[in-house]
Structures are given as C-alpha cells and as structure tokens.
Design a protein around this nucleic acid. Structure first.
Lengths: 107, 107
DNA sequence: AGTCTATATGTAGGCTGTCTATATGTAGAC
DNA sequence: GTCTACATATAGACAGCCTACATATAGACT
C-alpha cells in the first residue's frame, strides 16, 4: 500500500472503525488490519497524531482508562463525528466514481 | 473533490488518459474533466509538474509541437509507462478494496 | 535475573506531491 | 483594444503521512 494513496482517507478510516464501538489507538490499528485482511497496516506515528487531530476538531472524544498498569486513551465518535463520517462515506463514493471513470476502460 | 484525496493517484490518472492517444497538458486537463463528468478539475500547477516528473521517470515521452503560433508539449506513454499503468490499475483495485472493506458497513 | 515479545502512547523531523498565485504569450471574437 | 480561450510554466505554501526514536507495563521463557 503506497503511503501517499492513504492521504485524505485516514479520517474516514478512523471514524468508520469507531462507528460501532469506542476503541483505543492500538486496538484501532489492529481493527484496521483485520478488517482489511492485512492490507492496511498503519504505523503508530500516523494514527496517534491523527486521533488527536480529530479530537481537536471535535469529531472524537478521548478519555483515559486503565487496564491493570497499562494506560489507554479510548476514543468515541461524537455527534459531529458521526455526521462527518456520513460526509466521508459520500465523498469516498464520489471519489472512487471519479477516478474509476478515468481508470476503468469499461466505462 | 478534496485535494489530498488525489495524492498518489495523479500518476494513474495521467497515464490512463494517455493510454489511447498522446495529448498535451491542456488537453489532458480537459479529458480528465470530461471523462469524470466534471468531478475532476485539476489545476495547471498540478498537471504540468506531474507530467515533467513522469517524463523524468521515463513513463512518458514529451515532444514540442506547434499549432499555428501556439506551442504544445505532447506526451505519449512509453513502454515503461504502459507497464506502470497496469501496476497503477492493480494498486487502485487493492486500494479501493482495502478502504472499502473498512468503510462499507455491508462487507 | 535477564531477555524477549506484545501491548500501549507519543513526539520530532523529513518528505513529497498537490495547491494557490503569478507570469508569459498566441488566437480569435467582439 | 479588450476579453476570453488556449497553452505552458514556476515559486512557495501547506498538510499529512512516514520513519525513527523514546518511554513504559505485562507476561513468558530461560
């Protein structure tokens, strides 16, 4: 997976994986890997800053929790985040349609 | 169309639009707009440097031509470019499958 | 006791490709 | 003589993803 290709789609991925249940960063990385069948292996240096960014933007709400001695920051979708996710899904469809119409010789 | 979303897919678009026939930069921009039904309106400041980059990489071959007083630089796919296009198409499919598997709730 | 792996978060700095803004010039319509 | 379409190009800004590094706990294994 080319790194640049992910640009601008990271937000959609993070919001989407948090749609069903709140998760902490490490679990999000695993969820992305599992859901994509191993294709998406996003480095921590990408995910943690992105989560903070989405939190600052009000799309996620983060909260510290403890599991034994380990500290986790669990994120959940806010209402604004849920709306943003709908927008991201719609944008994704437009995007794939547009690129596909150029790339796909059948259309 | 979000600018960042295009990142890493510009090469595929340019190679693809040049697959059938050689075109010059301005015509490429129009072709992208037409093929995508207006969704793709790529600025000149993106296309011209990208074409030069692809030429440097050996995927395109450019040649100056004149139509009356107007000078055009027409680009055609090289053999390497044709191979690269096949790779880009394959990468595009993997990419949409991966993102789709996370974004699309039906899967 | 020491090492290793998995779990868990985070930052600094680099890279690179897309964008905005600007510059230059021809052709043709009005 | 002005406006729009055609045509190419560059400088600099910007954003976000990456690599590399730093830190720490838990548990297994030797």
């Amino acid at each position: 997976m080319n790194a640049d290709a992910l640009r601008g789609h990271m937000d959609a991925l993070l919001l989407s994986v948090l749609e069903r249940e709140p998760l902490h960063g490490y679990a999000i990385i695993e969820a992305l890997r599992e859901r994509s069948g191993g294709a998406l292996d996003v480095p921590t240096g990408t995910v943690y800053p992105a989560l903070r960014r989405l939190e600052r933007a009000g799309l996620l709400a983060g909260e510290w929790a403890s599991d034994g001695g380990r500290k986790r920051r669990t994120y959940r979708l806010t209402d604004a985040g849920r709306k943003a996710l709908a927008g991201e899904r719609s944008a994704w469809r437009s995007f794939t349609t547009a690129i596909g119409s150029v790339l796909d010789p059948l259309r």
